[in-house]
Structure formats: structure tokens, C-alpha cells
């Protein structure tokens, strides 16, 4: 196995594009190294992106924030303005593993790994985040929900790297939140994860909402029907009941060692209600 750590993204793309065997980008390595050590994959080439300076910063842009692909989750948590604007996304990133894992893990790695239960992804989906991709054929932007195509499989093509994730500006009276269900309190994988972002008008009526749903289907879902249950309401009990029903209805889970279909479907609705209440509270502040 060859290990490369170039200091420009162009060099990284060139090295990746030239490899005939199995090539992998290494960000924090908290997924990749585990997969290598457990013999799940045997890459011929690993390209570390942590030496690429342009990918290591969080920069304000058009009222939003651009988060470099090699920024760790812990660095996100230390960025006060980012936390103030997108608390739900940051809290999702800070649920990943433990303090030690967050010192290494990146939100982009979480996205590119394409696990259905990835914690930061439903929150990013709710936030309308955009992934900026650079590759041998240039640059392109995609909504984050278009990244995973199947468990462990992304829509990236050979030689492509996610350079950054962009979180857009947001109107006043907006709030977002993320919660996951795990049997324990930490160091666990989501059995269900829900991210919600919403915006209120001056009268407290919800004008915009997005609901991201994780761990209940092959990929993270954007649930329009759940968002519709909130839009035009004051996010009252009736709206929350509709939200729960729409969220549960969107679930396409499997029975596995982590939970039954019945359990996941029900808990998705329960979590959606709890998340909406937190987002509502944040939007009102």
C-alpha cells in the first residue's frame, strides 16, 4: 500500500487519477483505518488530505460558512460563529464518536463514507448543505443528499475529492437541531437520526422547513412530507403529530442487530417531534 500526503488539491487529484488499483482519500481516517484494519478493504493507494492548507479552514462566505474537507469536527465545535448559525449541524458533528475521535474525524469524511447512519448527514441535509467537488474534470457542486447512492457507495467518480461543504446563509428566526437514538449515551451508532431546520415568520408561523432522516433506509433521506407537516403551522401539537406520522411513513428500515423495523419506524417519529421542538426553540431566540 502506497501512502501519499500532497500539499495541494491538484496534486492529490493527479495522484488519485493516475492510480489503477484501489485508491482512497484519507481525512481523519476514523472510518478508513478501521476498514483497513478489519480487512474490509485493501487499498493500493491512500492519499492523505490533511497537508492541504486550503482544505483546513472554516471561512465565511455570502453570509454562510465554507468548511474545508479536512476540518475536524472538534474544530467546528470551537468555531463560535458557526455554532451560533448552525447549532444543529455542529451538534451532529460533535456526536461522532468521542472527544478523541472528533479530534480526527471530519464531517466530509462522514459524508463521503456514505454510511446510512452517519450522524452529521441528516443535519447537513436539513441545512441544505452543498458539497463542492474537485476532480480531473474540474469543479462541481451537489446537494449533500445526492452524495450517497448506496450504503458505503458515493456518487464521486475516479479522482474526485470533496474540497469543502458549504452551509448557506439563513434568514432571521431560523433554528436547526439534530438528535439520534442510541441505546447507550455515546460511542454508539445511530438506530435513527433526525435533523430539522426551520424558519419562522414574525408571527411564529413556519415558512420553511427541511427534515433529514438517517439510519432508516439505505441512504440518508430528505423527507418533504415531513417538512410540509410543519410549513404553514405554528409547530403546534397537531403539526407535530403530522410530522411524526410523515417521518415514520418515510422510513424504509430493515430488521437487524441494531433494531427492528417496528422500533425504528416508531422512534423516527418520536425523535422528529423532539428535534422540531428544539429547532423551534432556537428559531424563537
Amino acid at each position: 500500500m502506497r501512502y501519499e500526503a500532497p500539499d495541494t488539491i491538484d496534486a492529490a487529484i493527479a495522484i488519485l487519477a493516475a492510480e489503477d488499483g484501489i485508491a482512497r482519500v484519507l481525512a481523519g481516517g476514523t472510518d478508513l483505518l478501521v476498514q483497513i484494519r478489519s480487512d474490509m478493504i485493501e487499498p493500493d493507494l491512500v492519499v492523505d488530505i490533511k497537508n492541504i492548507n486550503s482544505m483546513r479552514s472554516i471561512t465565511p462566505e455570502n453570509g454562510g460558512y465554507r468548511i474545508g474537507g479536512a476540518v475536524s469536527c472538534a474544530e467546528m465545535g470551537e468555531h463560535a460563529d458557526l455554532c451560533a448559525q448552525w447549532p444543529g449541524v455542529v451538534e451532529a458533528a460533535e456526536l461522532i464518536g468521542s472527544t478523541q475521535v472528533q479530534g480526527r474525524a471530519t464531517m466530509t469524511g462522514n459524508l463521503c463514507n456514505c454510511g446510512p447512519a452517519a450522524d452529521s448527514v441528516p443535519a447537513m441535509v436539513a441545512a441544505e448543505a452543498i458539497a463542492t467537488i474537485v476532480g480531473p474534470n474540474g469543479r462541481r457542486d451537489i446537494p449533500v443528499e445526492d452524495m450517497p447512492v448506496a450504503p458505503g457507495k458515493s456518487s464521486l467518480t475516479k479522482g474526485e475529492i470533496v474540497e469543502s461543504v458549504f452551509l448557506p446563509a439563513r434568514p432571521e428566526r431560523s433554528g436547526d437541531a439534530y438528535l439520534r437514538f442510541i441505546p447507550r449515551t455515546e460511542m454508539d451508532i445511530a438506530v435513527v437520526g433526525v435533523g430539522i431546520s426551520l424558519t419562522l415568520d414574525g408571527h411564529g408561523t413556519c415558512t420553511h422547513a427541511r427534515v433529514g432522516l438517517g439510519a432508516v433506509a439505505a441512504t440518508v433521506l430528505l423527507v418533504d412530507d415531513a417538512a410540509k407537516a410543519l410549513i404553514g403551522t405554528r409547530v403546534d401539537d397537531a403539526a407535530l403529530d403530522k410530522l411524526a406520522a410523515a417521518t415514520s411513513a418515510a422510513c424504509k428500515p430493515i430488521n437487524d442487530k441494531r433494531g427492528t423495523i417496528e422500533f425504528r419506524t416508531k422512534v423516527a417519529g418520536v425523535l422528529a417531534q423532539r428535534v422540531a421542538k428544539i429547532a423551534l426553540d432556537r428559531a424563537g431566540k
Partner: peptide
């Protein structure tokens, strides 16, 4: 946890859940 195939499905601390300190 065993599958119908007679194989252990959770041979690791991720899915074999011992309590962690914060529990």
C-alpha cells in the same frame, strides 16, 4: 446475536454494547 446462518453478527464493541462510563 446470531443470524439464521449461525454466524455471530456483532463481534465487536460497536454492536456488542458494554456500558460506557457516561451510561
Amino acid at each position: 446475536i446470531y443470524g439464521d446462518d449461525g454466524k455471530l453478527q456483532n463481534a465487536g464493541f460497536l454492536d456488542y454494547r458494554v456500558p460506557v462510563a457516561s451510561d
